[in-house]
Design a protein around this nucleic acid. Structure first.
Lengths: 128, 128
DNA sequence: CTTAAAATACGAAGTCCATCGTAGTTATGA
DNA sequence: TCATAACTACGATGGACTTCGTATTTTAAG
């Protein structure tokens, strides 16, 4: 299980990122975080989170007057889901082409490069 | 110049991939290619390509009755554009996290891994 | 020349997304 | 207690995307 087809939109992703990072939060709290990045009306955020509730991406606790929302989907699962799709549609499934494009454009710091090298080393030894 | 903000949709990308791979082509030809993957009506493909023309993603030669379309945007530019956005929205800009997710899920063949290693080596020597 | 096939042009519908306004409800503090 | 602030519910709108049907034009064959 857990192989559901969650496909959060960009606006939904923004909210999920906040919930993933800060844990359960009220609409007010999420809206304030959002507004650090861009202007969004309170009821817009509210509506978004209600829709996400319908879609099953989040759950909420309604004990107190201001409901507390929590992410149901996991960050890594969501990223995996979206990445697979992106890989297909934009790079026709070629992972190396994607990485080339990514690394070829100075998108990674030295530290990140080191991390990636380490990961490749692990995969290779693992494959022996 | 050439730093325009092209953001092809998934359907548009499918068509671009065909044009990139096979070069200039008629609507009929593109539609046939598309139908190898999924069922699409001819006029749907036609309309899509006309919209892409408006958006400036493609140009066409109308000398002959069946117009010949050609991609204007470059594959690598488009991929770069989409990748940057995807990296931001899904991985909050962390390139290494993206690569981890990608490689951590057996999405790369041994050959691809080798290519990536080689690329990293080049970047590193380049940075000396 | 006439007709049928093939192509283009274009409007329109349906869906999804993001946004917001308004109405109604609940708590609180003066 | 009662006015006000804070919150939820929900409808509606506008735009982008995708799809397709219909009308029109062009070509080619007989």
């Amino acid at each position: 299980m857990s192989e559901k087809q969650f496909r959060p939109t960009e606006a939904e992703l923004e909210i999920l990122h906040i919930l993933w990072e800060h844990g359960p939060a009220s609409v007010r709290a999420v809206n304030e975080r959002l507004n650090e990045r861009r202007e969004v009306g309170y009821t817009t955020t509210l509506k978004m989170m209600q829709i996400m509730l319908e879609k099953g991406m989040v759950e909420r606790n309604t004990d107190s007057r201001s409901h507390i929302y929590v992410a149901v989907v996991r960050e890594s699962d969501t990223q995996k889901q979206l990445l697979n799709r992106f890989l297909q549609s934009t790079f026709r499934g070629s992972a190396s082409q994607l990485v080339m494009q990514l690394l070829g454009n100075h998108k990674a710091t030295d530290e990140e490069l080191a991390q990636i090298k380490e990961l490749i080393r692990k995969i290779e030894t693992e494959n022996q």
